[in-house]
Design a protein around this nucleic acid. Structure first.
Lengths: 253, 253
DNA sequence: TTACAATTGTGTACTTAATACACTATGAAA
DNA sequence: TTTCATAGTGTATTAAGTACACAATTGTAA
């Protein structure tokens, strides 16, 4: 939470630089040790967590705003981002209103107004991310998707909606390049799909289907040193992957 | 185009009532005589057409804003609406800037600022619509999807994006209830799918597939009086239709 | 060193969905 | 009554999805 002085400074600065009434919220998905993770922030004085977010500069494309915001939180400079929905309930910013009400007159307080938030989800490589807290938070950290904490505002609704969008995307686009390391095994990729979908898949059928997409290359050398039978290593065939991204998988109609 | 006096009044009013920097653009699809149609507006002094749109009241949910805007243009009060994407290029409102620049000082001119537009598409029954021009237009009319005129701003991009979203929806949700009359023949419904998709489908396979969804009821009586063999009439089974809307069709994964 | 547990790799039969394609039926108009 | 346009229906083939079982490898514990 900001002090009065900080709020004054932040508000002045924001009014000068950002488009009013618009915010951006990002759901950053990462994958590590067989677990789907989401990047969250937390202040010390509040129990609840919130999604990385921010505002749009006056002359900035909204997509670039999302990239900029995530660069600040993750240190990454190439980020796979997808706009998925707008959250425009007039009451959704009540939290900030309550928190900072009285500290400053309404006209001077950036947070007093209504914000319509554009939701983006991002898929990132867990190991490439260095979480950086923002000005309001002391903590920026990964949380397991199946052990999410209580969230501020409507952020629970937002990340659930992002997950729905991601699940839908799984049906007509390849996924994984942005979430997996360069080389990975088939069971690891399967685990990614399973955590996104929240259900188990059959190993044999998964392998046939994913190979059928033609977006994987199998390396000659299996991964050694594991405790069990050495699995093959795969990597994405970027040409086919990119092609599948634009073309989509199954026609449907 | 507004006169200076009108611009002054409009700007004052808008500033008082609407959320700044946010607009809504709607792509209204209708279906008539085997043609997919889009509802468009045009001023007399401009050659280019534009999409029905408007702004969000200060305490209004964005979805309700879209409904309100479309009620004004179509007279309908139940409208199937779907948010599909946000258009946030900082240059996208240049048109209005140019048009009204100099008429009023920037701070007083509602249209001088940047607008981030939320795109909705609507599916409506052609016969239920009574097109009403808005304050800026003299004409509100249906245009054939395959004979669209030149559009203002980025509105061509917007309706194309809406069509993409609609095509995608075809793959996992039923479509037609909002576009077809209560009773219709199988060839008519097929024509709807064909115009949305922009390609021909096989009659026999179409029928099998659509019946397989279990959302149609066939009436006993065929339609009489046509010039050829009397076709059966179908209507949507609303219980199954609603169910399919929420459940979706094919799992994919 | 050998048996065991955990994990990986692979194949086959069955069912369901998608595609391709052709004939019969009806009703109006010539 | 013949012809033309349109509607209704079925079947064979191919592709995709699902269900399921056994053999191979590697480290660990007996």
């Amino acid at each position: 939470m900001l002090s009065k002085q900080q709020l004054i400074e932040y508000s002045e600065d924001a009014r000068k630089n950002y488009v009013n009434h618009i915010s951006i919220d990002c759901v950053v998905f990462g994958f590590h040790e067989g677990q789907m993770k989401v990047l969250l922030l937390k202040t010390n004085d509040e129990e609840k967590w919130y999604l990385p977010g921010g505002f749009v500069l006056k002359e900035e494309h909204i997509d670039n705003a999302a990239v900029r915001i995530l660069q600040e939180r993750t240190g990454l400079d190439k980020i796979f981002l997808q706009q998925f929905r707008v959250f425009g309930d007039p009451d959704r910013s009540k939290f900030h209103n309550d928190m900072y009400v009285g500290m400053l007159p309404k006209e001077e307080n950036w947070f007093s107004g209504r914000f319509i938030s554009i939701g983006y989800y991002a898929l990132v490589d867990f190991f490439d991310v260095t979480p950086h807290p923002d000005q309001f938070s002391e903590l920026c950290a990964w949380r397991d998707l199946d052990d999410m904490p209580e969230m501020q505002l409507d952020h629970e609704k937002i990340y659930k909606s992002a997950l729905d969008a991601l699940r839908l995307q799984l049906n007509y686009q390849p996924i994984g390049y942005n979430l997996m390391p360069r080389e990975f095994t088939m069971p690891e990729l399967q685990k990614l799909y399973e955590t996104i979908l929240g259900k188990k898949l059959d190993r044999r059928n998964f392998q046939r289907r994913i190979l059928g997409f033609g977006i994987l290359n199998r390396s000659e050398e299996p991964r050694k040193g594991g405790a069990h039978k050495a699995p093959y290593l795969y990597s994405f065939d970027m040409e086919n992957y990119q092609n599948a991204l634009t073309e989509g998988f199954k026609g449907g109609w």
